[in-house]
Every structure is written in structure tokens, then in C-alpha cells.
Design a protein around this nucleic acid. Structure first.
Lengths: 240, 240
DNA sequence: TGATAAAAAGTTGTATTATAGATTATGTTA
DNA sequence: TAACATAATCTATAATACAACTTTTTATCA
């Protein structure tokens, strides 16, 4: 077994403190000097470990002030995505996952949603009727589906949905728009309306069916467009 | 505008080098000393910057060898989301999500798995027969289900599975053991064996059914034990 | 007594220097 | 040419010092 590095020792120690809630979000870590004392390592190693934790967004450092445990917000973590580029296939894989997760969340949502939640959901549908740009639709679409996952009352599921939509927004926004813009406004709004009404009627199965259908339509549309683009590219290739 | 820290300067410089492909994946970065010279900062600052890049998986360090640019794999970046999920986790909620995702991945796996993959899966089953401790079982269980999700050929799905098992290992290991240890060894191994055989037979539906049944049994067992513990606690309460 | 300003203490950021441990390159020898 | 020893290179860790910034305490004055 390979020996753990000193900085990893620090990393694990602090992570454990956070996991076990000994240090809660917003609270301050022991100072670097103190941590070095506790773990019997130099301040250099302590800093290296904390640097990593800060890079993945678990803690934030304030010069002169101390190091604090972050509140769990995805914005903190998204910055690391800049160097990545997601490809077409990634989009399809992601939607396949959504099909599985959304069908679960909408099911739970239909069972657990409150009156207030239903009202909010209705307002989003209302807004959808009056959108101007595809960008607006993306935001409403995101709000709609995240509201559903929120009312699934499964926080873990909701967190994963938040991650998925953040990644979507960050990396695939343009692609997503090409998909949604190609079909008629009315159709995609109707799809959401059907899901909404199934939720209102507390019909878990129906809500799930409409959701799966909604996602499969998006996937199909994308695959078709992708193939067209693929064939066009091929034609251009043969022309040469 | 706030002044950039030295370590951030290093971070940005290297990130730019990688994005502009001046240093391609697999290639080595200039040494810490050289980078410090180029950017006119001390080696400490260089190290801090590189430490961050290493934490988000853009580069890897080899003691004595140098620092290398990683191949751009999404799993490197998705892992940064683990901290978000560490907060507010609940075992049952996680297993509910697993039920949805595992049923998808096992389905895809049965369709796409290679001969070599089947063989590896069989070896894990073989190992399960000879385990001694529950800790070993956790590792094999993890390997088994991650191998399945890997052969689903959906990388996004696989990445989420990796995160889930990471969170499971970090937060719920003790709990998980209490669940698995209460039922007989034979039963839980048989469950995996059934899933394995369905995969071997390329029977997608059967594999999915056995997987769902497997997870629901775990959930049920946990709920029962939880209720028992809950009632015991209540009894103790009333005694007082 | 309360408010304000100054001082002190605490904390992170950067720099320098030194040594240890690991890998890679070099050169020598058989 | 191949094998082995050696040197050079590089990262890991450490100790120390000081700068920059924040928080807390203390002192002063109204």
C-alpha cells in the first residue's frame, strides 16, 4: 500500500471534519499553524492540502481572516468546467440519464407536492406562453424541471438534478437551443402542460409517462438533426 | 478590480497553456523552478497554483518525475461535485436514486458489455464467495456495480455512479455495513449472481428486474432495522 | 458609560533556503 | 550493445522570516 502524502493527510482530515459536521458550513477551520500542530506536519503541507480543498470549492480562504467551510452551492464548483468541452455524444448520454432521473422525480413530485408548489408550477407554465426568446425558454424549462425535482422531497435526487442543469447551462446551452428551437413553440409548451396537469391530478404514472415521452422527443429531435448535420458534412467531404 | 494572487497567476498561466494546446495531454509541464522563473514568483506560489490544478484533475504530479497534463476526461471534473452531495445526504434518498440509475445502467450493460467485461464480472462474483469481512464485501459490491455502469457505455451515467459510490463510501459506510450484515451472506451473493447471469444471457429486462429487486430488498431491510431501532429508542424513552 | 481610535494578536500570502526521496539522463564498463 | 553505476533533475517536505490583511483587545476621550 502506497503511503499517503502529508498534504493528503491534511485533505482527508479536514474533509472528515466537514462530513461529520464537526465544522459546519460558514464556520472557520483551525488556523494553518494549529492544523500543522494537530497533524504533526509543516505549514507547507497544511497549505497544500487546503489549497486542494479550496480548488474543489469545499472551503474558501480569506487572507488575514481564516479559512471557512463553504455553503454547498454549485456555483462554487462550476468554475472548473472551463477547460472542458463536451461533445455531441455527451449530450445524448446526459439526456438518457435525465430520462431515468426525471421519471423518478416527477413520480415522487406528483405524490409529495404541496398546494403552493403546484401554484408555482402553474405560474411557470403561464410564463411559458409569453416567452420571446429561446434563452428565456431555457430558463423556464430549467425552473420547471428543478421545481419538480425539488418537490420530489428527495434532496439527493434534487442535488443531482441541479448539477445536471448547471452542466447543461454551462456547456450545452447553444446545442440545447438548436434542439428546442427547431420544433414548434406550441408543441414543447404543450408537453410541459400535460406533465403539469398530471401532477395536479396526482397521477404519478401519467406524469411519468408524459415526462419520458417529453425527453424521448427531445432525444429523437436531436438525433435527427445530428444525423442531418452528419450527412451534410459527409456530402461536403465527398465533394472534395 | 482586486489584484490577482501569485498562485492564481500560475494557475491561469498553466490553464492557458493547456487550453491553447501549447502543452498537450500527456506532456510535461516546465519544472516548478522554471515556472517560478518565467512568472517571477517563488516556488511556493508555483506549487500552490499547481496544487489547485491537480485537485481539479487537469494535471497530475509525479514525485521526482514532473507534472503532466491529464487527458481531458469528464470524470476528472465531475468529481468536484462530490462536496455538494456530501451535505444533506440521506441513505434512503440515495438508494432511491440508485434504484433509478442502476436499473438503467444494468439494462445498457446487458446490451453493450464485451466478453472481457463479462469475464471480469464473473471474477468479482467468484471473489464474493470467499470474503471474510463486511468491509471486503463493500469493496466488491462497489466494484461489481461500477463495472456494470462502466459497460453501460454511457460515460455520464458512469460518472454519476462513481460520485454516488464515493459519497456512499465517505458518509454511509458504517450504516451500509449494518444493512448488509444483517441478512445472510448467501442471500446477498445470490442476488448479485442472478444479476450477473441475466447479463451473461443478454436479458436486459431480467437484469433490470433483478437489480431493482436487489435494491428494494436493501431499502426494505434498512427501513425495518431503522424502525426497530426507532422503536427501541422510543421504549428507552418511555422507561425514563 | 459609550463610542471611537489605536494597538496588539492572529491568520493567510509570499519568499528563501535546505534536505530528502524519486525519477530520468548520462556515462562508463564489460 | 547491454548492464550497471552515477549524476542531474524534479517534486515533497520542512523551518523560518516577513508582508498584508483581519479580528480582537485595549486605551482614550467625550
Amino acid at each position: 500500500m502506497r503511503k499517503k502524502s502529508k498534504s493528503q493527510k491534511v485533505y482527508d482530515y479536514i474533509e472528515e471534519l466537514v462530513i461529520s459536521s464537526e465544522i459546519k458550513p460558514g464556520e472557520r477551520l483551525p488556523s494553518e499553524a494549529k492544523l500543522g500542530e494537530i497533524l504533526n506536519v509543516s505549514r507547507v503541507s497544511v497549505r497544500a492540502g487546503i489549497e486542494k480543498l479550496s480548488a474543489i470549492g469545499l472551503v474558501s480562504k480569506k487572507k488575514g481572516g481564516g479559512t471557512y467551510v463553504n455553503k454547498p452551492k454549485n456555483e462554487n464548483y462550476l468554475s472548473v468546467f472551463t477547460p472542458t468541452l463536451l461533445h455531441n455524444t455527451d449530450y445524448l448520454e446526459m439526456m438518457e440519464v435525465r430520462r431515468a432521473l426525471d421519471s423518478l422525480s416527477v413520480q415522487l413530485c406528483a405524490k409529495n407536492i404541496s398546494e403552493a408548489g403546484v401554484k408555482k408550477l402553474g405560474e411557470i407554465i403561464e410564463h411559458m406562453e409569453h416567452i420571446q426568446s429561446d434563452l428565456d425558454f431555457f430558463d423556464l424549462d430549467k425552473k420547471f424541471h428543478l421545481l419538480i425535482s425539488k418537490h420530489s422531497k428527495n434532496r439527493f435526487l434534487h442535488n443531482i438534478h441541479i448539477i445536471i442543469w448547471d452542466v447543461l447551462q454551462k456547456t450545452l446551452r447553444s446545442k440545447y437551443n438548436t434542439v428546442t428551437s427547431s420544433d414548434s413553440h406550441k408543441e414543447r409548451i404543450d408537453e410541459h402542460k400535460r406533465i403539469y396537469e398530471a401532477i395536479v391530478g396526482k397521477d404519478e404514472d401519467l406524469a411519468r409517462i408524459y415526462t419520458v415521452r417529453h425527453l424521448e422527443r427531445i432525444i429523437d429531435t436531436f438525433v435527427c438533426e445530428y444525423n442531418e448535420a452528419y450527412h451534410e458534412a459527409k456530402e461536403q467531404e465527398t465533394k472534395k
